[in-house]
Amino acid sequence: MEIRPATVDDVDDIRRIVRSAWDHTYGFLSEREQEVAFEEWYGSDRLETQLNDDDAIFLVSAADSEPVGFAYATTDIDPERVGESEIRSIYVDPDEWRTGVGSDLLTAIEDRVSDRGFTQLSAPIFTENERGRAFFEANGFERIEERVVDLFTGGTYDAIVYYHQFSK
């Protein structure tokens, strides 16, 4: 597996990976909520903006040049959270689950965040996303808070924020 910075050429593959992962993970969200959230969070224009954001770290894991997973983190969060960055997305094609792709992407994000001087990484996860919660817990993240997330259709869902501190 090769882990590399994502490019605009990866946008369609990133959308494919998200859609496939959501089909296996987000059954607790209605179809409408999934569709609206997908277009808001993973619309082509939004992804291209994120890819060009200096505060973003956007990586792709590729097998034989084809993306099978990606991770996106930002260092532009609440200024009161000194030294903290946030992982906004990490998804792997379900055919590649349990192969280490997700953990490798997470390590690569931590390395790049650390290179920018950050020592903490947080990750908000829907409470009902058992697979996501298990992934972060298995990778040394601790549960630090609960919050309610507003969705674009007017609904809300409970989320858990995970936290990991690492050394430079």
Rank of each mutant, 00 (worst) to 15 (best):
W41M: 14
V101N: 08
S20Q: 08
F152E: 15
G69N: 07
I17N: 01
I17T: 04
T107A: 14
T107E: 14
P94V: 01
I160P: 01
Q34K: 15
I87R: 00
I144P: 01
V18L: 00
D54P: 12
D64R: 04
F141T: 02
E35D: 13
H164I: 04
D55L: 06
W41P: 03
D76S: 14
R112Y: 04
V68T: 07
T25E: 10
I109V: 15
V82P: 00
Q165H: 12
R88D: 09
D115Y: 07
T107I: 06
Q165T: 13
S103R: 15
I57A: 08
G100L: 06
V68M: 05
D9G: 11
G83A: 08
I90M: 08
E142V: 07
D10M: 08
G43S: 04
R4P: 02
Q50D: 15
I17Y: 06
Q120L: 10
R16S: 11
D111H: 13
G102A: 09
F70D: 00
D104S: 14
R81L: 15
Y42F: 15
V101H: 06
P79V: 11
T99C: 09
Q165K: 13
E66I: 11
N139W: 06
G83I: 09
T119I: 07
A6K: 00
I144V: 14
I3A: 00
A159V: 06
I77W: 06
S61M: 03
W41G: 00
A6I: 02
L121A: 05
N139F: 07
V18K: 00
I87W: 05
Q34W: 13
P94G: 07
T107F: 08
I125R: 02
L121I: 14
N52E: 14
T74Q: 09
R112E: 11
Y162I: 06
P5F: 07
Q120T: 15
F28Y: 11
R81F: 12
G155Y: 12
D150I: 00
R116Y: 14
A134H: 09
I3S: 03
E2T: 12
I77F: 10
Q165N: 12
D115P: 04
E48P: 02
D93Q: 04
Y26V: 06
W97N: 03
R98M: 10
W97F: 11
H164A: 11
G83D: 07
L106A: 05
G83R: 08
Y162F: 15
E128N: 02
D115T: 09
K168Y: 10
N52G: 11
E2L: 13
D64F: 03
E146L: 02
F58S: 03
T7S: 12
A108Y: 04
R46H: 10
N139M: 08
E2A: 10
L59E: 01
A159C: 04
R116N: 04
Y91T: 04
E130D: 13
Q34E: 11
T107R: 11
I87H: 01
T119Y: 13
V149S: 11
V92R: 07
T119K: 10
I3T: 05
Y72F: 15
E84W: 13
F126A: 04
S122W: 07
F38Q: 05
R131N: 06
